[in-house]
Amino acid sequence: MYELIIVGAGPAGMTAAVYAARKRLNTLLISDDVGGQPITTVGIENYMGYQFIEGPELMQKFEEQVRQFPSDVKVQVGQKAESLSRIDGGFEIKTDKGEIHRAKAVIFATGKRPRKLNVLGEKEFLGRGVTYCAICDGPLFAGENVAVIGGGNSALEAAEDMIRIAQHVYLISLTPLTGDRILIDKVTGASNLTVFVDHEILEIKGKGRVEGIKIRDLKSKQQRELDVGGVFIEIGLIPNSEAIKAITTLNRFGEVEVNYANETGVPGLFAAGDVTNVPEKQIVVAAGEGAKAALQAHRYLQRLK
């Protein structure tokens, strides 16, 4: 049995791992990937110590720092925690690879993932016109009509990129646009952009690749079809909290509720980073929360002795 298992290897999980190692806790770090959300962040200009750094490079530095302590922290990548349950003297984690790991304490730091639309055609046309990474796939739709789905900053940023590249951009949002005013002004002034607010997506259509979408006005119920070759889905993030929802409390957004000391309602189960209800989803905040969680876990383990 480990003293501590950290689930998730983003900024929170990896920072927790370094703090755990420095307390010489016998630790297992498990995660399906290394780096978490910053991997898709091109430029970071607000992580102290770096005036500018790319997300993948910063996360590589985090990983190197974790791997300095191989005797204290065992790192297992490519496994996702599917469920976490309480056992005598601690916790048991089952992974999607069928492995079982046990520890006296757990830090849950699994972050968030892009929300899906859950409409017909979304899955079928993934990589064939449907994308969740505008920065990656945007240039492939040069000169075509595209739809950007969402009304927040990510959607507006994708729209801002695409008005420069695409023939025409349709920005489609379920609600009025909620992003920063400066972005809204910049984007909605473009001559090759049409905004549909209070519209839902009914279907993504095509043959072999995306050829169009069907949308509906929430108020008038009027439907219309738009010819587009690309659909950029930017409708926010959802917390990866499924594995522990059976044993602890989530808020209405699905985030794990923790107190100021990263404690969940379950003794020995801590949570940190974007998966929690802590406000402000920032790398520097997640890293700080990871450090706090590890120090609290250490204190908890000391009390058990």
């Binding site: 898709t40 962040t41 993948p56 990474c133 920065i135 990656c136 945007g138």
Partner: peptide, 28 residues
């Protein structure tokens, strides 16, 4: 690949780390 794509960089790093020779095409 496309130049701004972080997953492309990760994929290339993975191939490189595993000594797999590859040809890259910038589709932009």
């Amino acid at each position: 690949t496309t130049p701004g794509c972080p997953y492309c960089k990760m994929a290339k790093k993975f191939l490189g780390d595993n000594d797999i020779k590859y040809q890259e095409f910038n589709v932009v």
